[in-house]
Write a protein that binds this DNA or RNA. Structure first.
Length: 802
DNA sequence: ATAGGGTTAG
């Protein structure tokens, strides 16, 4: 019955050893600047970009190298077309600083600025805004302030561009009060000053202030330009608040030059309403358009897909064709992207076919969007095939496929692809690293994650909030909560995502107190507390048994923060109350829910009934669950476990029979362990690993030593009524035991063993692992579906409460 | 004005 002879194992050698890394490609300091005879770019006479365009990263570096040379020898003629225009050193610096910012390297831009100051190169009113932009992007408030001081000292602050950039910088660094102070002090303001300040407020979610300023701007008879209105509307779109959106709409209508709104601003409004999730309003603006063009059609159709109304989207697409508006590349791009984001595989395929049938050139952008769409729909084979068919692959399509592998948890394929990417000379960037890191987090691959982290450092790659959040999350989910905390503490800039990731980390590790402290800190510092924050902190309370704190927070969430609890929050509360033994209170809470309880809620109650041995209430929960999801056997299993625990074998048989009749199957337990950079997966009774014989020998030894230590298997967790010896065997071969045996034979003595399991650890394995940690003198770190268990010296960090 | 790859929860 429970034999699972299918195997999933991957043992490819790991290609990513740090010693195999290519030398760092970024070594500006080592360019031989004092030897004019060795000009590495002597033969290069042209570049492929026009003076209006910014060069790519490699080109920027080349120009940079030349700039360094010319500082020492002004007679060298610069072979690059860009710099032949007799630019002053200041202008060259300005150009480079802007280039690096455009290439996502604000930190290098800032280094250049420092160098510029060291060399006494004239800093002018063109330099300052670029530098401030770099400071804003990297949230370097200190350097931003210093630059502000420099501008003041040199009388550059009266320049309206400089002032606008200062407002923007302070706002990006979170100091909106200071931004406003500057705004108020400005002698002359242009439309950009007003809209920058308004956008600052919106960015910092100060909507009332933003609307107030719009009103003020109106009173001062400053007419917003069409462009400034569009940029304001776009910002409100990012915030996705329907009430604010409507206010913005009213403003736009009042300030429009004609009675009818222009097509640009209308399209921005359509996009805004779509992002607020209000299709009806978007459609009203769209229908009001006398002259629709392909841009407005694109925005509207993409909106329908975005909101999962595929039918209406397809209908509108056809109407568009009938009205002789024909899709362009951006149309197809937008629609493919939206299909991917909602997982609409059939539509995505249809769009792919449309692209091919109608002779669109398969640009890299289109191919990337399609690879991503297939990846998000878990169609790895299609994603790969499309990827393989593209020439001149760039970093984006690479990253898209890595991200596709990440979605499918294909660790080894992703790391192989990454190695391939480096070999072919494509420079990975932060986005690539985020995909890899979040994959490591998901599968618990600590070694690979650490390696990627060291690669990031070695390459001196910038680490922005998103990448840092991914790293914090990875270390937490891979069991190294200390490292996660260190990265979190060192962050110069934290958004609510990063705080949430850290808190979730504490929750998983059962550190309830730390999670609560973090919550307090968030609250004090005015960080946005959203529903994910509360899911995290309630989970933490649940895992640490902090019932009173959890209840208080739940109240606070509703009454102090005005957040409506979602079904997930009820799930946390039921879990919290249930685990602590307050089964009736948990049941009462479910009955009081304003929405239909889902399987998570009833499942939490059922699990609690199992812990506290309450078969009567368990039956209630199980019946609800079976009604909600008759095909899901997980609840059947738990239910029959409850019966088995009290030896009600007739009922066990009843559940089993109904499961058989419905054709349900148990979700197989799957445990994985990372050895030498490869991830090895095991399922129960697994015999397909190349080292199976050794693994089972080890298993036999473990069983023997456990017996000697006085351990008797607790077979009540096994569902069927079979004789004792057979039950023992089944428990012994649980997937985590196999992974543990493999870990013991393939790692050095004394090294910690880390295992990731897809289900919850069963009681028996929990007891056995505690003993095994003592017997073998190993720290065993097991991440199950809910949380971490650190086994050491016969004890578990969860205090047997999970 | 619509525009290729990325983070937390579920």
């Amino acid at each position: 019955m429970l034999q699972m002879d299918q195997i999933m194992v991957t043992t490819k050698p790991h290609l990513l050893s740090p010693s195999l890394l290519p030398p760092s490609r970024f070594k500006i300091n080592k360019i031989p600047i004092k030897n004019p005879n060795s000009d590495p770019y002597k033969h290069q006479t042209t570049t492929s970009f026009t003076p209006h365009e910014h060069p790519n990263f490699e080109q920027t570096q080349q120009i940079h190298a030349h700039l360094i040379k010319t500082q020492f020898d002004h007679t060298i003629q610069i072979p690059l077309r860009h710099l032949q225009t007799h630019l002053s050193p200041a202008a060259q610096y300005n150009f480079l600083i802007t280039s690096y910012i455009k290439n996502d390297c604000p930190k290098i831009a800032l280094k250049l600025y420092a160098q510029m100051r060291r060399m006494d190169t004239q800093v002018d009113s063109f330099t300052i805004p670029s530098v401030l932009k770099a400071c804003g992007q990297s949230s370097l408030a200190v350097l931003g302030k210093e630059t502000h001081g420099f501008a003041l000292k040199n009388g550059l602050d009266s320049d309206v561009f400089v002032s606008n950039a200062l407002i923007q910088m302070y706002s990006e660094c979170g100091n909106v009060v200071f931004a406003r102070l500057l705004f108020d002090q400005m002698a002359e303001r242009d439309v950009v000053s007003w809209s920058t300040m308004i956008r600052s407020y919106v960015r910092n979610r100060l909507f009332r202030e933003a609307l107030e300023l719009i009103r003020e701007m109106h009173c001062m008879q400053v007419k917003p330009s069409e462009i400034s209105m569009v940029s304001m509307v776009n910002l409100f779109a990012d915030v996705a608040d329907i009430e604010m959106g409507k206010a913005m709409h009213a403003y736009v209508v009042r300030n429009g030059t004609n009675e009818k709104l222009g097509v640009s601003i209308s399209t921005a409004l359509i996009d805004m309403y779509v992002k607020c999730g209000n299709l009806a309003y978007a459609r009203r603006v769209f229908d009001g358009l006398a002259q629709k063009n392909i841009v407005s059609w694109t925005a509207m159709i993409a909106g329908y897909i975005h909101c999962r109304n595929l039918q209406e989207g397809a209908k509108l697409f056809n109407r568009m064709l009938v009205e002789r508006n024909y899709p362009n590349e951006i149309t197809m791009l937008s629609l493919v992207i939206e299909s991917g984001s909602v997982g609409a595989l059939e539509l995505g395929k249809w769009l792919h076919a449309y692209i091919l049938r109608n002779g669109f050139i398969m640009s890299l952008a289109l191919a990337t969007a399609l690879v991503d769409m297939y990846g998000k729909c878990k169609e790895i084979t299609y994603a790969r095939a499309l990827f393989d068919s593209v020439d001149n692959k760039d970093v984006m399509i690479w990253s898209a496929l890595i991200s596709a592998y990440a979605h499918a948890n294909c660790t080894n394929q992703a790391s192989d692809l990454f190695a391939q990417m480096k070999d072919s000379g494509v420079r990975p960037n932060q986005v690539t690293m985020v995909s890899l890191i979040s994959l490591c987090a998901e599968v618990g691959a600590l070694d690979l994650g650490k390696w990627v982290h060291s690669y990031i450092n070695q390459q001196r790659m910038e680490v922005d909030v998103i990448l840092r959040t991914a790293l914090v999350d990875m270390y937490a989910k891979c069991g190294d909560i200390d490292m996660a905390l260190m990265l979190f503490s060192e962050a110069s800039n934290r958004d609510s995502c990063m705080w949430n990731a850290m808190m979730t980390g504490f929750a998983m590790h059962g550190c309830g107190k730390q999670a609560l402290e973090l919550f307090e800190q968030m609250d004090r510092q005015g960080v946005e507390l959203n529903d994910i924050t509360f899911i995290g902190v309630l989970h933490a309370c649940s895992h640490a048994g902090l019932v009173a704190d959890g209840k208080w927070l739940f109240e606070k969430m509703v009454h102090v923060y005005g957040l409506a609890p979602k079904v997930e929050h009820y799930g946390c509360m039921v879990d919290l109350l249930g685990r602590a033994g307050n089964l009736d209170e948990a049941h009462k809470l479910i009955k009081s829910m304003p929405m239909q309880p889902n399987t998570i809620v009833w499942g939490a109650l059922l699990a609690a009934c199992k812990i506290h041995k309450n078969p009567n209430l368990a039956e209630v929960a199980a019946r609800e669950l079976l009604e909600l999801e008759p095909q899901n056997c997980g609840y059947n299993i738990l239910m029959s476990n409850i019966y088995a625990a009290s030896n009600r074998w007739n009922e066990v048989d009843g559940v089993r029979k109904s499961m058989k009749d419905r054709g349900t199957k148990k979700e197989p337990g799957l445990s994985s362990i990372e050895v030498n950079g490869s991830v090895h997966d095991f399922i129960m009774g697994d015999k397909a690993h190349p080292q199976t014989r050794k693994i089972y020998e080890m298993l036999a030894e473990m069983t023997k030593k456990l017996k000697e230590a006085g351990y008797t298997p607790n077979t009540s967790v096994v569902l069927q009524n079979i004789d004792e010896e057979e039950k023992e065997t089944v428990v012994n071969y649980h997937s985590e035991r196999l992974a543990m045996a493999f870990g013991l034979i393939s790692s050095a003595a004394g090294m910690p063993i880390r295992i990731v399991k897809n289900l919850r650890v069963c009681e028996d394995c929990h007891t056995a692992t505690k003993l095994l940690s003592k017997i073998y003198g190993r720290v065993m770190i097991v991440r199950d579906r809910n949380r971490f268990h650190h086994f050491r010296d016969g004890y578990c960090s969860c205090g047997d409460y999970w």
